[in-house]
Design a protein around this nucleic acid. Structure first.
Lengths: 330, 330
DNA sequence: CTGTTAGCGCCTTCAC
DNA sequence: GTGAAGGCGCTAACAG
């Protein structure tokens, strides 16, 4: 900018004004400045210097968890991002996807990102990345959970939704089972009976499990006997393997409450006649006639972005509904 | 940082070293600094100030075109972004999605984004957003086209691929037609006969059209008589409408070369027995038994990011193949 | 191992 | 309508 000022024969301030308040500069000066800028290939004020000066970046940071690319492989995550992007575009904010995935360096990358606020995709309470986002003292909005002081939570009421959908899939069954998303960040596959929700680190998984337990209790079923198959991730083929194990453990199982449509589809691949419910109401649910919990991830993404950028947090607790289809005999 | 230094009773440089080269600071000083930082809620050096000082942001900018949210609605665009994100995560670069969509302000937003390089999703040569990206003098990689001096192009050879797939779908037909993506940024729907590729602003559309023309010539068909239905975007329902118009114009049409699987599926909805080819080999192609052009968008996204961040540009010209399925009688 | 100096590029404030 | 001073927070280079 100094160079442009010299080339144009004016002071740096005039150059600055030319870009920020063109109307306060005489047409001649403006022309001189723009000519000089064109000649020197100066495209405008440096963004970093500007951010430093203003103390704001007009950028929203998004942290999608340990496997960044997962964010683009999962339809729900993509819908969520679409909602975030929509709000960002409206308000002229950049959307910065923070490069997590290495584990080790993730927290420092979060701290070092030039953003005004953070949206964090569901994780565990002890995730160092969440800690890092909060340590920057910038607004943090968490999707799904955990709830944490100083952050805003945007989530449906997973427990109530789980209770409702399990009431349907388990209605009239004797041997209900659960097909679960991971319980903690180690993401191990295992089988348990009557898994205690309190032992589960991911709040979303925990709440859904608690809701399933509620439903079991409502139906007079013994939760401590209910097999829970935990998958490594939201993945059909892993769900197939876990379903196979569940069947070995409980050959007469007759009702599968799955925490996602993809897991449900994995179960159906093993045993197409299974009574099963999913979660999300993605295109798979329609294709396979799955009873499922519908929620609008795009709206939730938009809500997260709005809240992070200073809007009021809209409550999404009740923004779900059970969609009944053939997979539960409907 | 100055405050932390004062609270810790050391100089700002010691604080800086504590964060950037901890090993060069005595354990005691380091402890004092970290204590003071914790007490003051200081999380580390300010990212903007750092970027200003270093002259680099460690952030890659991505411009997805006028409808930002489209980027998340289109499976190909998402796969592309996944590839970009993968490379960014590996190298510790942030991925900034520039908030385009307003039209008017888009170029200035591109200029004002704090990034080290740009990846631009396919557009027209006269797009002000592309101009803006180039004006910043930062490296620019364009996906699909246009080719432009000072930028790197990553693209398959659309013309050759179009020629190959049209050879298949039009083999033995008498009344071939084209179902085209938009020709320019006005994105209007219309019908033309023997549309001249040279009149088309989007390079991707232009090259595919030229390839179809090549195929027509190869097959001894008269290009000037070939109806071309241009859709407003990559959208099934629009394709349905345009196909209906094509059928009104040419009731005996017997071979549809579509520039995307979604357009092809739109055509099939109007007339399920149609001989038709698609493009992209997305999940729709498999579902509907579509003959199509397969290309790996994720790899192309990764290639764009690598090239933008200083790697060599890998050539993707031949990274396509025709997948033959039932929709062309295979 | 630690501190001093200087300046990255910009814009708010205040003069003229 | 224009310009001079100062400082946003940081770190390279160079002492000590």
């Amino acid at each position: 900018m100094t160079e442009v000022a010299r080339a144009a024969g004016v002071s740096p301030m005039t150059v600055s004004y030319t870009y920020n308040r063109p109307e306060r500069v005489s047409p001649e000066s403006r022309a001189k400045v723009l000519d000089a800028a064109a000649a020197l290939g100066y495209a405008g004020p440096d963004p970093s210097a500007r951010s430093l000066r203003y103390g704001a970046t007009r950028t929203l940071g998004v942290v999608m968890g340990e496997h960044l690319t997962y964010a683009f492989d999962d339809a729900q995550a993509v819908a969520f991002l679409a909602g975030v992007a929509e709000v960002c575009a409206e308000r002229g904010y950049g959307l910065l996807i923070v490069p997590t995935g290495t584990g080790e360096e993730d927290p420092s990358r979060v701290v070092a990102a030039a953003v005004d606020a953070y949206v964090v995709w569901t994780t565990t309470a002890d995730d160092p990345v969440l800690e890092a986002a909060c340590s920057t003292r910038r607004p943090v909005v968490v999707h799904g959970g955990p709830e944490r002081e100083g952050t805003t939570l945007v989530s449906i009421d997973n427990r109530a939704a789980a209770r409702a959908v399990a009431a349907e899939v388990w209605s009239g069954t004797r041997r209900p089972v659960v097909l679960s998303l991971p319980v903690d960040r180690s993401r191990e596959t295992f089988l348990a009976h009557g898994l205690d929700p309190a032992s589960v680190a991911y709040p979303v998984t925990r709440e859904r499990l608690a809701g399933y337990r509620d439903a079991a209790t409502d139906l007079g079923l013994d939760w401590s006997a209910v097999p829970v198959g935990v998958c490594r991730g939201n993945d059909e083929s892993d769900a197939e393997a876990v379903t196979t194990k569940l069947l070995a453990d409980t050959p007469d199982l007759d009702g599968v409450a799955a925490m996602s449509d993809r897991l449900a589809v994995g179960a159906l691949r093993v045993s197409p006649a299974l009574r099963v419910s999913g979660w999300d109401d993605c295109h798979l649910a329609g294709q396979h006639g799955l009873t499922t919990v519908a929620q609008d991830m795009r709206a939730q993404g938009a809500a997260c972005a709005s809240a992070a950028l200073g809007g009021a947090a809209t409550d999404h607790g009740d923004a779900w509904r059970v969609v009944s289809r053939a997979s539960t005999g409907g």
